[in-house]
């Protein structure tokens, strides 16, 4: 029992030390005019994105290809036929296009597949608005805690829409613009270039165990050539390099 207390205290201390909030920032009194439609950032895939991927978790090192695809939103379940009428229900509306900006996409369903270069699948995940389904996964990776982290990572990566309770800061050394706010259950800090037109990083967390920092670099034709997803709490790093198919 004593040991459990000790481990819990250490856990809270270690987790508490991990900060993903950008340092040296000054709050801006008024919101800077930032046209979300002109911001260059990772856009959620309409068809699919293919990346060369490197996953490092502690001493484990995996490489391969990562595919992210936004699936067609399934139509809502048809209403049960009402007695005596025999009317057919109206056709389901077409899926909504992804919104611009960096907020939660409540309608999107994403498939994320990580495979080695030879084609063997490491994991195949389906991310919906409220859950993560493990379609298939190598036994050694299929741990509940790790899947929770992946859920946060890919949910944050595929954010679209706007941040709520937005507050804008300027970072002293870099002049980068920081947008702080909330998206669903996540606290987020999004770093933009000084002109506010390029997304550089997203930091987010919903609890002390799932902080994530996603960096976007080497933009080409409005899309980042490299994306790095870091989970400081478990020491995991997923590096992605965009490949042309």
């Amino acid at each position: 029992m004593k040991n459990l207390w000790f481990v819990s205290i250490i856990f809270v201390l270690v987790a508490g030390c991990i900060s993903i909030k950008p340092s040296h920032t000054n709050r801006q009194s008024s919101i800077i005019n930032r046209q979300s439609s002109t911001v260059v950032s990772y856009t959620t895939p309409v068809v699919s994105h293919l990346f060369k991927a490197t996953l490092d978790i502690k001493k484990h090192h995996l490489t391969g290809l990562l595919v992210i695809k936004r699936m067609e939103t399934p139509p809502p379940a048809p209403a049960p036929p009402q007695e005596g009428r025999g009317e057919t229900p109206p056709p389901a509306p077409p899926p909504a296009p992804p919104q611009e900006g960096r907020g939660e996409d409540s309608s999107g369903i994403y498939r994320i597949v990580f495979m080695n270069e030879i084609g063997m699948t490491f994991f195949d995940l389906e991310l919906s608005a409220d859950s993560l389904k493990v379609v298939s996964c190598f036994e050694s990776l299929n741990k509940k805690a790790l899947m929770k982290i992946f859920e946060t990572d890919f949910r944050v990566l595929n954010w679209s829409g706007l941040v709520q309770n937005e507050q804008v800061y300027l970072q002293k050394e870099t002049n980068n613009m920081i947008v702080k706010g909330r998206i669903g259950k996540y606290k987020t800090w999004q770093t933009y270039s000084p002109s506010g037109d390029t997304l550089c990083t997203i930091a987010a967390k919903s609890s002390i165990a799932d902080p994530v920092i996603i960096s976007f670099v080497q933009y080409n034709d409005g899309f980042p050539g490299k994306i790095t997803i870091e989970n400081p709490f478990i020491g995991m790093k997923l590096a992605l390099r965009k490949l042309s198919k």
Binding site: V47, V67, K69, M115, K245
Partner: peptide
């Protein structure tokens, strides 16, 4: 690599 989830193949 042919995947049921995406229409195009990974070549």
């Amino acid at each position: 690599k042919e995947m049921s989830m995406i229409s195009e193949k990974i070549k």
